[in-house]
């Protein structure tokens, strides 16, 4: 089992009110799955994604990633897992505006501590794969929305993560460029990467092989096709 969530709850304290964002969630995901999480705003799907990405800690429950209890890891070890095993893609891309496309893609390699030579080679290869070679030295402001998200995907996948977490990856894109981005995600899925997409978009969510529906912090439907 790639990802194993058992009895996961996440409670936020808002003033003197408790908000149960996740309520005893159980979810197992095997390697290579293509899974979508759908549900209305506030259903807890983003919180679920953050917990899977170890950006957030569950209030209770166990989370095993590749058979390791990641909630028990130290801060430095968690960062290492995020760096090497998990890739994030965001609705608003989150590119660093003062860095070029190539420099943005290079960031995880710098954090990993790879040599300059190796970084250059890997960035060039990924730029080629994502068809961004001629955009390498452009800053985000000089790129179209679709290109920005492709840069973000290249950055998320350059260290060959086991799982790719996408939070509304097409939310800021028009239909055509959104389709390009989805095609790229599916290409990565075919290459063996586990892909988890959180979305409002029924069309996008429907493309996944396994569809999870959430409401009020609970999974109300889990359907595979």
């Amino acid at each position: 089992m790639m990802i194993s969530l058992s009895n996961i709850s996440r409670i936020f304290i808002m003033g003197d009110q408790e908000v149960r964002a996740l309520n005893h969630i159980n979810l197992n995901i095997t390697a290579g799955e293509y899974l979508s999480v759908m549900g209305p705003s506030g259903s807890g799907k983003s919180t679920l994604l953050n917990i899977i990405g170890i950006l957030d800690r569950p209030t209770s429950g166990t989370y095993l990633l590749e058979k390791r209890d990641v909630t028990a890891l130290s801060e430095v070890e968690q960062a290492k897992v995020r760096r090497e095993r998990i890739g994030f893609i965001f609705q608003s891309f989150h590119l660093v505006p003062r860095l070029t496309a190539a420099e943005n893609i290079e960031l995880p390699l710098i954090l990993e501590g790879l040599s300059l030579q190796e970084r250059k080679a890997r960035v060039a290869a990924v730029l080629e794969e994502t068809d961004l070679t001629d955009r390498a030295s452009h800053r985000p402001a000089e790129l179209s929305g679709g290109q920005r998200q492709r840069v973000a995907i290249a950055r998320a996948t350059i260290l060959k993560p086991a799982v790719l977490l996408a939070d509304e990856p097409t939310g800021n894109l028009d239909h055509k460029t959104g389709a390009e981005v989805v095609a790229l995600l599916e290409k990565l899925h075919h290459g063996g990467t586990t892909v988890i997409v959180v979305t409002h978009d029924r069309e996008l969510g429907g493309r996944a092989h396994r569809k999870v529906q959430m409401r009020d912090g609970e999974i109300i439907e889990d359907k595979s096709t």
Partner: peptide, 15 residues
């Protein structure tokens, strides 16, 4: 948000 991104990319507090 840039700091958040760096953390998501696997930067440690030390970094």
């Amino acid at each position: 948000s840039e700091i958040g991104l760096l953390k998501a990319l696997g930067a440690t507090r030390q970094d």
